[in-house]
């Protein structure tokens, strides 16, 4: 039972991170039918940007104020990079065959990954301890302050995003654009602004995910985006790509699954089992858990 509860706590933590990153994939796919392969590397880049903000801007302070500034500044920087990425790598290919955009996404991924390496170097860096190491021992289950923060902040962000999409005028524009771009234009919706908006939101959430990765695992490397990006991408597919609550659910599920495999079987097998899970879900529900079966338009 102890193992179960402990892995539940660990799984929810990793799951939150997967979910935050998965939202970036799913929102971009929802509107553009494009897998933004550079998203994982953007997440990696945010950890390094956060590190630089910590050392260069905040003078290595770990006060609450400093942590808030690190989060806001990093999210803003990455939001700008996201908008720039869309402008440079995807917008010129908007009307090109879909494969061209996929190749461009893979190229962007390599550019960002190598950019990180050139700026911050190829070696692993240690992310600062932004949150004091406080642990609570709840009868054999150890929960850290950082886990609580990650879970709580992720939930707040996800609920906020959900309300934004479901309840606001701009959210309605996002939903309309993801259903039918031309029909959305006929409603007077500026689809280019919607696309910029989803890159801003997706990159900001990804940036927070990247900072969480740094805070939780401490060691950050220039190529770690590949691994986390892949997991988050799988989470988005499991939930039903293009579906926002699906990405949140997929992320949590995948985090829990991973933690339980690591706890009960072996962490070396976690990847293999993850892919087996993905294959099984795709066999049973090819559109993911919450994905709708959409009929082709006539």
């Amino acid at each position: 039972m102890d193992i179960f509860l402990q892995q539940l706590a660990n799984g929810l933590t990793i799951g939150s991170i997967f979910a935050l990153v998965a939202l970036g994939y799913t929102m971009v796919y929802g509107v553009m039918r494009l897998i933004n392969f550079a998203h994982g590397d953007m997440v990696a880049a945010s950890a390094f940007v956060g590190l630089t903000v910590y050392t260069q801007v905040m003078g290595q302070a770990t006060s609450l104020f400093s942590v808030i500034v690190i989060f806001l500044l990093t999210a803003s920087v990455m939001a700008c990079v996201g908008v720039l990425l869309e402008r440079l790598a995807y917008r010129p290919l908007r009307d090109a065959p879909r494969l061209s955009a996929v190749v461009s996404a893979l190229g962007a991924s390599l550019v960002i990954q190598n950019g990180i390496m050139l700026i911050w170097g190829p070696r692993m860096q240690i992310f600062p301890e932004l949150v004091p190491q406080v642990y609570w021992d709840l009868g054999g289950v150890v929960i850290s302050l950082i886990q609580v923060i990650i879970l709580a902040l992720s939930l707040v962000l996800m609920v906020g995003l959900y309300l934004f999409i479901e309840k606001t005028r701009m959210g309605a524009a996002v939903r309309a654009s993801s259903i039918d771009q031309d029909a959305a234009r006929l409603m007077g919706i500026n689809v280019n602004s919607v696309i910029a908006l989803i890159f801003i939101i997706g990159s900001s959430l990804g940036a927070i995910g990247g900072l969480f990765i740094g805070m939780y695992y401490r060691g950050i490397t220039f190529n770690m985006g590949w691994q986390y990006g892949l997991y988050a991408f799988i989470a988005a597919i499991i939930g039903g790509i293009g579906n926002i609550p699906g990405a949140m659910m997929g992320g949590m599920l995948l985090g829990l699954f991973n933690a339980f495999i690591a706890g009960y079987i072996s962490s070396t097998w976690a990847d293999a089992f993850t892919f087996i899970l993905l294959i099984l879900i795709l066999i049973v529900r090819p559109t993911g858990i919450l994905g709708e079966r959409v009929a082709e338009k006539v």
Binding site: A183, L186, M187, G188, I189, E292, V298
Partner: peptide, 30 residues
């Protein structure tokens, strides 16, 4: 659309996964 031309397209192109009322409200987006 803002200028005053509205287009009901061929094949209807309604937003199928939204409700009738949500569709109408999107029509008033401008």
């Amino acid at each position: 659309v803002k200028l005053g031309i509205s287009h009901s397209p061929e094949g209807r192109r309604v937003f199928g996964v939204l409700t009738v009322e949500e569709n109408l409200l999107l029509g008033a987006y401008t």
